[in-house]
């Protein structure tokens, strides 16, 4: 298709943009438009679109700008939260992994040392005897095999605290998901 342009096209376009077509335009240009296909098309289309634009502008019902500002605010906040959620997850996983390694290392160390309370039989006996004499059993627990090593209490309590911490972290991960 050959691109044919008329030398009056720009002049005509400017007149229409200024609202001077057809009343305030030279008669010779009007005569030219009636005979020129390019200019005739331009006038026909521009008038139709300008008419449609006026009607569409009147039909538009835009919402309040505050609504859009609020939606944009929400979206940017969500994006910001998403951006920092990955480092936060890493910061949560790292101490958990360290705690797990420490707990595993401690358990392995204690097992190799032959501490009685790490064996199944010890706890089984303790639970069987617990209803009979709970207080006495507790005394035996505190003064019996554990008393064999001087630092056992110092290790046992942090180990229990670690388990509690890990348990709470596990509960958090299980319940925090949307």
């Amino acid at each position: 298709m050959k691109l044919t342009s008329c030398r009056h096209e720009n002049e005509l376009r400017e007149l229409m943009a200024r609202g001077q077509w057809p009343d305030a335009c030279p008669p010779e240009l009007r005569a030219h438009v009636s005979g020129c296909r390019t200019c005739g098309d331009l006038v026909l289309i521009s008038e139709a679109f300008q008419h449609a634009r006026v009607e569409s502008l009147a039909a538009a019902r835009p919402v309040a700008p505050a609504v859009l500002l609020w939606r944009a605010q929400l979206r940017r906040r969500n994006a910001a939260v998403e951006r920092i959620s990955l480092p936060l997850l890493g910061a949560q996983i790292f101490p958990c992994a360290v705690a797990l390694f420490a707990a595993a290392g401690f358990a392995g160390f204690e097992a190799r040392s032959g501490v009685a309370w790490l064996t199944w039989n010890y706890w089984h006996d303790w639970f069987v005897q617990l209803p009979q004499a709970a207080v006495a059993q507790w005394d035996s627990l505190s003064s019996g095999s554990l008393a064999g090593s001087a630092w056992s209490w110092m290790v046992l309590l942090p180990a229990l605290a670690t388990l509690l911490l890990l348990g709470s972290v596990a509960v958090y991960f299980a319940t925090d998901k949307p």
Partner: peptide
């Protein structure tokens, strides 16, 4: 309004134009 008019006339769907206009501004 000009943006809504553009969207409504291009899509021939005023409801879609409403949605897309808001999304454009956001």
């Amino acid at each position: 309004r000009p943006l809504w008019a553009y969207l409504a006339r291009s899509s021939a769907d005023p409801a879609l134009a409403d949605d897309l206009m808001q999304e454009s501004y956001v």
